[in-house]
């Protein structure tokens, strides 16, 4: 009984690490630019496929992580500057922008379906002996995933709290006009945001496929609900909130899977979303003043 719970919680922490990496990127991007980017899942999948291509040529999964991060960063910067900014200049508001990102998500998802020939590819990393810690048995890969999540969280918090760039990022998320008036180079900060959130997005894609051991064109799309729910629950623009929310959702999902059958573990994610809506209405309430996009 207790053993089942303990190992379910451990698996929950592994899943939470994957959600958290994606949700941290999402929450920075959303908090700063105000673009609710529904193509985020598609860009995760791009990162995953990039890593798959690298490792299938014989390089190790570490290179896959690096390549996935770079791919995510570049694609995000290109769509941010090349597509989203164009719509923002034409006067798109938050809702139109969300529909644009949904259209872009469709283009990315089905473009990847076309390129991947609608197949699911196996993605395996070298497995070694599992580590047992009392009732909890984790593979070294899972431990590494938790480590990556933790390292990224600490690094991101350090960047935001201790450096001048982080201060500028936080200032822009709080009030873009005031930040600009204070002499912050807002254009460069937006570019940095696209790169940073895109890198986290690509990394999350790679970590996700390392965990699930396969990659297909729907990988990111199926994962996106959990990421968005975590970002909203944690509060837009707050990596710490996103990590806590990810832990909650990861553990809930895995505990439900352990006891109630895997069928309903996704429904549990749905339950968390309902709780978000009912318990934190302030997170999603209308703020008229906050409907402006910050893209330049």
């Amino acid at each position: 009984m207790f053993d089942t719970l303990a190992s379910a919680v451990a698996f929950g922490v592994v899943l939470a690490s994957v959600i958290a990496i994606a949700a941290m990127g999402f929450t920075i991007q959303f908090g700063l630019t105000n673009v609710l980017n529904l193509s985020y899942g598609g860009i995760m999948t791009i990162g995953g496929f990039a890593a798959y291509l690298v490792t299938s040529h014989g390089l190790s999964a570490w290179y896959g992580l690096a390549v996935g991060a770079v791919a995510g960063a570049i694609v995000t910067l290109v769509v941010g500057r090349g597509i989203f900014a164009v719509y923002a200049r034409r006067g798109a508001r938050v809702f139109e922008m969300m529909m644009v990102t949904l259209g872009l998500g469709l283009v990315i998802d089905y473009g990847l379906q076309a390129l991947s020939r609608n197949n699911i590819y196996e993605f395996t990393v070298l497995q070694s002996t599992p580590i047992s810690l009392g009732p909890i048995i984790l593979t070294p890969t899972q431990v590494i995933i938790i480590g990556i999540g933790l390292a990224l969280f600490v690094g991101l918090e350090a960047l935001l709290r201790l450096t001048k760039i982080g201060k500028a990022l936080r200032a822009m998320a709080a009030d873009p006009a005031l930040a600009r008036a204070c002499g912050i180079r807002t254009r460069q900060i937006v570019v940095l945001t696209w790169l940073l959130s895109g890198a986290l997005c690509g990394l999350a894609g790679v970590v996700y496929i390392i965990n699930s051991q396969s990659v297909g064109y729907t990988t990111g799309e199926l994962f996106l609900p959990l990421v968005i729910a975590a970002a909203i629950l944690g509060g837009a623009g707050s990596p710490a909130g996103a990590v806590l929310a990810s832990l909650l959702m990861g553990i809930v999902t895995q505990v439900v899977a352990a006891y109630g059958g895997s069928l309903y573990s996704t429904a549990a994610g749905f339950g968390v979303l309902v709780i978000v809506l009912l318990s934190r209405p302030s997170a999603v309430l209308t703020k008229q003043a906050n409907e402006e996009l910050t893209l330049a």
């Binding site: 609710l36 529904l38 938050v94 809702f95 922008m97 969300m98 529909m99 949904l102 799309e221 199926l222 996106l224 609900p225 968005i228 729910a229 909203i232 996704t266 429904a267 994610g269 749905f270 979303l273 809506l277 999603v284 309430l285 209308t286 703020k287 906050n290 409907e291």
Partner: peptide, 16 residues
């Protein structure tokens, strides 16, 4: 709530 939140939540309901 903001319309983009609304849209995203509906989309998530649909996927789930």
């Amino acid at each position: 709530m903001r319309r983009d939140y609304q849209g995203a939540i509906m989309l998530i309901v649909s996927l789930i």
